[in-house]
Computed example of a mutant assay.
Amino acid sequence: MIKVSVIVPNYNHAPYLKERLDSIFNQSFQSFEVILLDDNSTDNSKEILVAYAKNEKATHFIINDENSGSPFKQWNKGIGLATGEYIWIAESDDTCDLNFLEEQVKALEQNDITVAKTIILTDNIKTEEELRNHFQFTYNTNSLKPEHFIDYCPIGNVSSVVFKREILNKESMNFSSFDIIGDMMFYFENFLEKKIVYTPTTNSYFRRKKDGLSNLSKKDINYYKKYFNEQAFLLKKISKAVPGEFNNQIKKRLTQRFNKIKNRLSFNQKISLTYLSIYINYLKSNKEI
């Protein structure tokens, strides 16, 4: 049986694809399949992927006819195709050490989820800065609890994670309907109460984006609306899963996220119907927590 299913979701990451795919196919641990997914890229990603799709370990190569608009839909598609005992979602602009799978698979003998040490890439240069995985640095826990999702996403980057396929909660795979916090929803739906461990014996490398999904400074009001609605949904979900003593903390985070948006809007945006709908959802969500 194939040990690891490696899902590579790509959209317009041609400058990084060769480095990423070489880091996968040249792993010291070789019991894996590779599922190549392209979300209708407009750069030359497809030409690069075609060459790697000829490798015998590439079991699927799928190019979407239209862009899905969400990397999380690609995650979901890859999970549906995976046959391995373990799953690794290897984002196409990241990279890793060649012993990454070897060390992660060793750790999975005693755990459900492993998260490798993650180093930040800035301008294609490996820095000395480590991406914070809050389950380790903040919560010091060996299993995720609902309250660990109130303040932060507990895992910094999905490329650093390998997990057992059997832990997936197939009845709750709603994360792909989220455009912005689909990663948090995925962890919340599938990783709660599972045994998680930090692996310092290998490195994953996260490419820091200057204008990624988490950067709200240059977004329009429709993006803000979607961002707040998704955050409010998750906070309400958390409030139903934790003791009442956490409700004040959750309400505080809801207000902080609302103010984060409000403080970025112009006067004209604040008198729009879109802002009114955000405000109404804020009041409603505050009551429901």
Rank of each mutant, 00 (worst) to 15 (best):
N142F: 09
Q136T: 14
F135T: 03
N10F: 00
Q74I: 02
Q256D: 14
G212T: 09
W75T: 04
V197P: 04
N99H: 06
E128N: 12
N157M: 07
H148Y: 05
V197A: 15
I155R: 00
S41R: 00
L254W: 01
T118C: 07
T114H: 02
I167A: 03
H13R: 15
A53G: 09
E230Y: 03
F137S: 12
V105W: 01
A82Y: 00
L21K: 02
M185D: 15
I62N: 07
D183V: 05
K46T: 11
F178S: 07
N286E: 14
G182V: 02
P200Q: 01
K252M: 12
D151P: 04
F100R: 07
E33P: 01
N99E: 12
S172N: 13
S272P: 05
F188L: 14
T138P: 08
N281A: 09
N10Q: 12
D220P: 06
N44K: 12
V50A: 15
S172G: 08
L17H: 01
W75S: 07
T201C: 11
S272F: 03
K237C: 07
E230T: 05
S23G: 08
N140Y: 11
K260S: 10
E47H: 09
E56S: 13
E66N: 11
N140S: 09
D93T: 04
S239D: 02
I62D: 04
I238T: 06
F100Y: 14
F149Y: 05
K262P: 06
I271Y: 14
K195N: 10
I289N: 03
I181E: 00
V242I: 08
I63L: 07
I181Q: 01
